[in-house]
Design a protein around this nucleic acid. Structure first.
Length: 352
DNA sequence: CTCCGGGTTT
DNA sequence: AAACCCGGAG
């Protein structure tokens, strides 16, 4: 049903019942303790592509490290990435950092209330604009995330909700009185009741108005598009160690794990030749470490690490600007992608 | 183990 | 359209 017309009775019932449910059942989440725009902004960046339970573990430490927009703006990128380590989608951390700097420089240090100014910040798209504006500033504007999309598709039995349909419907049913709570209530319903799989319609406060529930199509709304094929690849990593340190390289500024530290990848040559290529002197025989499997969105990588003790001539340098040696106990201070950390841990195990 | 979910940018 | 990350669910 494409609701050209949504009956006022449905709208009113939906709003009243869902807000009442939210008042009763809203989870006590750390970013709901107040309406500080900076804190809302941080939570929304972290919540992009990431579940609430994961974000909860990072949120308070982040605010302790960067208690204000200004503190964040003044931090170095390395500090920011370190605090983000493990959350994934590291571009979000850079975007948040940049956004803080822009807000300090161009908006007098206050998160802009204006929708267009918000939308112009790096890492802030349509959803985040609506979420921050409605939650922090009570602006009556929708915030359609994946949860809301699913809830609305089911409520109106829309098989393929496109962005224009979603915008229109979300705007029409939006509570004018409590837009921030309303948007959060919709998302919360999607996260806790109207879940992608095994939805709990028996516990749903709005099932009596839900079209898919009435029609028995809940499990098919919204229809999921066919998945793209996931490519598989094998990457050989060199784990050079020397006097209690290992060698890391900063990855290129674009592409996979852009700008993060990682063990160097080498191609089809043998690892000793690669060491020589970097100006290092192989000291013993290479040792194969167990492969580490890691899944990215579009890629399934099997990392095959080979460990090799080397000597390095301080006068030569050799390893280039993008390389650095890090003590085996000094990696805690470095932002390292999860797969690289796994490689590092198996290397540690081997060395002791 | 495999599958799946989720916003923004380019 | 494709790229980007991790962890929970089944």
């Amino acid at each position: 049903m494409k609701p050209d017309f949504i009956s006022p009775a449905t709208t009113m019932g939906f709003r009243q019942a869902l807000l009442a449910h939210y008042d009763r059942a809203a989870r006590d989440l750390p970013w709901r303790r107040d309406r500080d725009p900076y804190r809302i902004l941080v939570s929304e960046f972290m919540l992009q592509q990431t579940r609430v339970e994961t974000v909860v573990k990072y949120y308070d430490p982040w605010l302790e490290r960067f208690p204000s927009l200004l503190a964040l703006a003044e931090a170095s990128e390395d500090e920011v990435l370190k605090a983000w380590e493990g959350l994934g989608y590291y571009r979000r951390a850079r975007n948040l950092h940049q956004a803080a700097r822009i807000i300090v420089e161009s908006h007098s240090g206050s998160v802009p209330t204006d929708l267009e100014a918000l939308r112009a910040l790096p890492g802030v798209g349509e959803y985040t604009t609506g979420a921050v504006a409605s939650i922090a500033f009570d602006v009556p504007t929708p915030a359609v995330d994946g949860n809301v999309r699913r809830v609305l598709a089911r409520f109106f039995d829309e098989e393929r909700p496109d962005p224009a349909w979603l915008r229109r419907v979300a705007r029409e049913i939006l509570s004018r009185d409590r837009p921030g709570d309303w948007n959060q209530a919709l998302m919360e319903l999607g996260a806790t009741v109207c879940k992608p799989r095994s939805p709990r319609c028996d516990r749903c406060p709005v099932s009596r108005w839900c079209s898919a529930y009435a029609l028995g199509t809940v499990d098919e709304r919204p229809a999921s598009p066919p998945r793209r094929e996931i490519k598989k690849s094998v990457v050989t990593l060199a784990v050079f160690h020397c006097r209690g340190e290992v060698f890391l390289q900063r990855r290129p500024e674009s592409g996979l794990l852009a700008g993060l530290w990682a063990f160097p990848e080498y191609g089809h040559e043998i690892v000793s030749s690669y060491a020589v290529h970097l100006g290092l002197s192989p000291m013993g025989k290479p040792t194969a470490l167990p492969p580490v499997e890691h899944r990215f969105t579009h890629l399934h990588v099997r990392y095959v690490p080979t460990m090799l003790e080397v000597d390095r001539d301080e006068r030569v340098g050799g390893v280039g600007e993008r390389g650095r040696w890090v003590g085996l106990d000094g990696l805690e201070d470095l932002a390292l992608p999860v797969a690289q950390r796994k490689v590092f841990e198996s290397c540690l195990k081997h060395l002791k």
